[in-house]
Write a protein that binds this DNA or RNA. Structure first.
Lengths: 278, 278
DNA sequence: TATAATAATGACTACTCGGTCATTTGTCAA
DNA sequence: TTGACAAATGACCGAGTAGTCATTATTATA
């Protein structure tokens, strides 16, 4: 599906410049050098393209950060977290621009739900990170919001001013800020009550064992014979009939973690098997 | 111009729900119970309405915060700043929602410039606030970004989750966080170099004496005889031919500061006369 | 080379948008 | 009651939209 990829890449460029609404299918097809019909052979609609685009990048973003968080010692955890996040932002700056611009502004129902879903995944990641570092501090949920605030603001600067940006330095600065807040703050805004209230008003989309198997199945079909495919097959067996040592599973997950098409399924499996340094 | 006001209010409701693009003039006129023609008698175009709306609310927002900052002792300055900001957000929640949703996402040139302009005014306000409290600390510009991050995140929560929101408590919590950062952080991200770089890439729209006089003139025409009008007339004299004591000017500014139609001109004059507690 | 299967085309439809303007309605003073 | 002026109307216009589909081009197979 080289055509799908082409469309996605070119469309992303236009979306980043102009936004979803303001970019017409016509414009996309012209920019790709294909016909309108060809577009609709690849994607059923403009909306489908947008949703596919969102999935493609958010899955990478989340799974990259997740891997980093799960495989870093506490000492450098905050630094690595920020670094990984900003790294991905810089690599996929067009997508990041698009997300910032479109933010909550989307009124398309499906799109909104998807965004919220990935948003919650990121939040969950941050929560576990904080719990690992600071335990059940009273300002746990304040720290979550604070970290998100840092990420928002500095991501905006990174993307919309062409500053000579030193991500290493930024990450060091932000992890100091986070630690300082964690150690010295005494007045939380989020009470347990309020955070429960927010949690309740969420749609929790848990991914079931069946769904994971489905995604696994599909990825197995996509790949040709390779270490990755082998690993996926073994991991499938392991889900259906758990037999192996956790070290073996960890190794199998390691095999697939950096393959672009496997990142997401690796993320899902890490969570399924409860794998991680914590 | 009751018609203009009606349109603005009703349109704001729709914009907050759906965004600028997604709201048609048709829809606005139906919601107002007027005809399309009537709409175009009040505003030359949809864009003009949007710009007018932005001016109307941002002028209030900025001048309210400015007044608070300029008239609060250092001790409670941070608290008052946050409180004033969140207060206004809560009062004009529809407008705030709109701003958050539309954020940088706007591709209309004029609109973008206006947003950036008000953005810079707010930033300038925060900078002077920080200078007053912490002097020329090395993390001055980091604090600015941090504060903006706090405002963004918690404003989002305030608006999009119907939490029982205690603004007093929130403001106390955030001012503690800000102080903690100011006192304990040692690794600034913003070097003097970077902040200069950003400053350079800005369009600085200074408001001239002439422009202030123009705005004054117009406001004088708008008002009927009243203390406010009287004060405006005296202030105009003062600009053209400065004679009075600064205490008198302060008093005159106080006279007009809370009148909705004068807030903006009061803000401009406060800056023109260099009035403030600092 | 002939045939079947697949990929790609772009004119076309049905619709929505912002904006216009000839016409009608409402409101005064004479 | 009349006439003059202002306020308000909504059918209409041109431009642009997402999506369709009969037709044509390309490729693979026999």
């Amino acid at each position: 599906m080289a055509k799908k990829q082409l469309i996605m890449e070119k469309a992303l460029e236009l979306f980043a410049k102009q936004g979803f609404e303001a970019t017409s299918v016509q414009q996309i097809t012209e920019y790709c050098g294909i016909s309108k019909g060809a577009f609709y052979l690849a994607y059923k609609s403009k909306d489908e393209l947008i949703l596919a685009l969102l999935d493609h990048f958010m899955e990478q973003y989340i799974s990259d950060i997740d891997y980093t968080v799960k495989n870093t010692e506490n000492e450098s955890l905050l630094f690595s977290f920020y670094h990984s996040a900003f790294q991905t932002v810089q690599e996929h700056s067009n997508f990041a621009k698009l997300i910032i611009k479109e933010q909550a502004q989307t009124f398309n129902g499906d799109l909104f739900n998807k965004m919220q879903y990935y948003d919650q995944l990121l939040e969950q990641l941050i929560v576990t990170l904080i719990e690992r570092l600071f335990g059940n501090t009273i300002i746990k949920y304040d720290l979550v919001s604070t970290i998100r605030g840092f990420m928002n603001v500095y991501t905006g600067l990174l993307l919309f001013h062409n500053i000579p940006f030193d991500i290493d330095h930024l990450s060091r600065s932000l992890s100091e800020k986070t630690k300082v807040l964690a150690e010295h703050c005494t007045i939380p805004f989020f009470t347990e009550e309020i955070s429960m209230f927010i949690k309740k008003h969420r749609i929790n989309k848990e991914i079931s064992k069946g769904e994971i198997l489905e995604i696994l199945e599909q990825k197995i079909k996509e790949l040709e014979a390779s270490i990755e495919k082998e690993s996926l097959l073994l991991l499938r067996e392991e889900i259906i009939n758990p037999t192996h040592h956790s070290a073996i599973i960890a190794g199998l997950l390691e095999n697939i973690r950096s393959h672009p098409h496997c990142k997401w399924v690796a993320y899902l499996l890490r969570n399924y098997f409860g794998y991680g340094k914590n």
